[in-house]
Write a protein that binds this DNA or RNA. Sequence first.
RNA 1: GGGCCUGUAGCUCAGCUGGUUAGAGCACACGCUUGAUAAGCGUGGGGUCACUGGUUCGAACCCAGUCAGGCCCA
Length: 962
Amino acid sequence: MLASPALKPRSKGYSETLNLPRTDFPMRADLVRREPERLAQWERQEMYRQIRASRANRPRFVLHDGPPFANGDVHIGTALNKILKDVIVKYQTLAGQDAPYVPGWDCHGLPIEFKVTQNMRQKEEETVDAAEIRRRCEAYARKYIDLQRNQFRRLGIFGDWDEPYLTLNKAYEAEELELFADIVAKGLVYRGKKPVYWSIPCRTALAEAEVEYREHRCQSIYVKMPLVDSPGMFVVIWTTTPWTLPANLAVAYHPEKNYSQVLAGEETYLVLTSLLDDLSETFGWNNFEIMKTLEGSQMEGLTYRHPFCERTGRLYPAKFVEDSAGTGFVHIAPGHGLEDYGLGMEQGLPIYSPISDDGRLATTGELPLEEQFGSELAGKSILEKAGTSEANRAVLELLRSRDMLLHEASYTHSYPHCWRSKTPVVFRAMDQWFIGIDRQGFRDRALAEIDRVDWIPDWGKNRIEAAVRSRPDWCISRQRTWGVPIPVFYDSEGQPILEVEVIRNTAALVREQGTNVWFEWDVERLWRRVRPAAWSGAEPARKSSDTLDVWIDSGSSSRAVTMRNPALQAGRDGEREDFVADLYLEGSDQHRGWFQSSLLLSLAGNGAAPFRAVLTHGFMVDGEREKISKSGAKGKPQTAESYIKQYGADVLRLWVASQDFRNDIVVSSDRIRKVGETYRAIRNALRFQLSNLFDYDPERDRVAEGELSRLDRWILGRLGEVERAVLEAYERYEFHVVYQKLSQFVTVDLSATFHDAVKDRLYTLAAGDPKRRSTQTALHRLVSRLSQLLSPILVFTADETWECLPGTRATPSVHVSRLEPGAFRLEPDEERQWQELFRLRHQVLQRLEEKRKAGTIGKSTEAAVVLRTESSLTEALAEWGEDLREMLNVSLVEFVAGDDAGNEIELNGRTVAVDADALITVLPSGDCGLSKCARCWRWEADVGEQEAHPDLCSRCVAVVTA
RNA sequence: GGGCCUGUAGCUCAGCUGGUUAGAGCACACGCUUGAUAAGCGUGGGGUCACUGGUUCGAACCCAGUCAGGCCCA
């Protein structure tokens, strides 16, 4: 049956007569090694400049970059953010827009200052002056900017890397101060005393964003407050911060809840009725008697003696008093808590905060000295070590000695901690600068602006709205060194000099010299320079040492960057407000961060939001869908670089694109590796297409659209559908849809179907055969279009593909190319026939597989297929001839009428049995009078008809002898 | 504790305003091929749509609650 090896025709000779694929486009991408080479090439070509030039006078699309903090390696989450931005910028460019990208860095702030001062402490350097600390901070920031810039570039992100915006640039700082002056001029800035989060080790007030909640074990105490007019009777308060008791000025009760007067032992106590059971157990009251029940309102006007200071306080009603914990009476220290502060302001109490900057108890001028605490407490530190502090111990000691401590226990709860020093923060009233959110209807105007912006996803609007609605006044001063100074002076009375003209003059000075001048020059010199010409107010005695909140820095970027950088200015449309960007794109945490600070500052300065649309992405979680910590406590830190070194930037970018980034994003090496499989599938398909275009010159060989073969029309029709879906997905920022559509098109339509069907004609027909050229025309269109559609994501591979395209191209890089609209569409009739074909094809493939399992055939060309026509559609397919044979990839397709009763038919002079019941009969090719052609490997009836070529079919003979 | 959001095959995603046995691709298994070959093709198995109730003739889709997770607050 089988020919012996000696007789087997030598196919080697014929393969040289075939148009076998060839290409320089390697199968193995070797991205890790080769991407940097392409990067260097782009560098030489000044690709970003070229792209911008190619889009001169086109409508602009401005994506304004949110500045990452200039500290550490690029985290995988930051890489995701930048990649998403780059995909958008590249897509907009592809669509023909001028889409500039100016990256930025946030340079000031506590983390850098903390590192720098920590280093100095470790080296036991003597106290260095502020200007020197700032110089070191700048050096530190610049070091990481360089580091991160290289890492971002390595990701294939195009942008103005030579001139990024830095919040430490002189011009930036000057604009920021100008904006500050505007806000001051509008009367939004005021000075006030307010409890702020205070970090003792860092000696600074902290922003809301700078505290993190952690479980904290503290001392929970119940304290007796003796009532003045009722000897032996006490209200009982509960606190977890004993050190705030010296600052106690009042006690709050709930006006609408009931209280019980309880006799236990010798003494009488007042507590909330609903908590009595719990409390009696806690206090170990075995025998107690409820004397009577009081309504909350009956507490009004009661006064108590401070448990250890020589003063009295009053009881006040407050709705915030809880009935689920505590005693129903709340210890109020207006200088040490937000609710306490609110009540204190309402009742006209002093905002008393007897704490020094270094966290020690210290008397103040707020109360007469004799009413304050004594020497037992003075100077005691409140900084906790191992769950307690000097001050807490001293307060407890004092309470015990006066028999005012009812009960003591330890208690664990979630408590704010300093994000850097990880120590519990304290609430402390201080003089600070604020932006009054409710001044001049500012909050309402902000809410109105929020309504005008397009928030994507739409629930983002709920978030920022809630954040703006509920936010307190913005504390904008920091007692830090590494930041933009607040240009304020103080006179000899300590009264602040906050003057718009002074601020503007300072801004002008900063534009020349940078902000370090504020720290380097003494008061006299500074004042000489910035003093308003017609100054008649008090002369300054000292300059402010406060800096602006870093959220003012980054939040000023629409003013300092979008509005000032000519590259980001309005395009031809001229309707764009010069400070409004088309898009901001950051993680969803920025609803309370940068989006909000940018919105508020732009509104204050320019009267409108700085963005038209705001897109947010979720956060990275690990394989168990739990958050991954930036410090890498749970394994090694997740740096972008570690993934690039393993997979290359294109695979990482493809992975980013594959994720629905609006939700949490699960990152694991394994998942990225899996996306690498998809990458290979795409790459191989591109390679197949390129390799079959080795002898194709589009100018010479292109086949007109109307002359394309049926298969080619079909695949271009599919390409058109996919292209429309892909472009729509890009427009909607749904890159995972782009990924799905393109990867499935590549695997299903191209690799498994089209490429497979078209091999025979590509390889075996004469090079210039119109049918072959038709398919090459389709392949050329496919590969160039795919290269473009992929280019926002696979930046390196798409460009490499573009380079390998035959023929001269208008543009040297896919990234400069423009996607011309105009996708091919099939006629409805044609479309229906194709649907029918695929239905039929699937059934045929199932039958073939059965035969294969039975060992009757191997590859499908070893089979012939007999089909019964069952409908007009199948009949239409009968007209397809060679096209149908190629799509089924069998050696022969024969149709018999559906009602043909016979179950035997003639094929090439052989009688073969046809399954009477089935629509499809599969037969081995050899049984149907066919033999295998040594050149094209198809089974044909006419093999050997030409004597000169006994092992060839006549089709091949014609090609070989041509 | 509050606000916002998420939970569909091992993985990544579809599933339109509730309507026949929940769909793709990848991965997996088993074959085929060796002229895309550190490739390619075929067939196949795999989901009580987080869980529990409810509304409805009918729910992955609507409602309530629970659980798990995320972001932001307290």
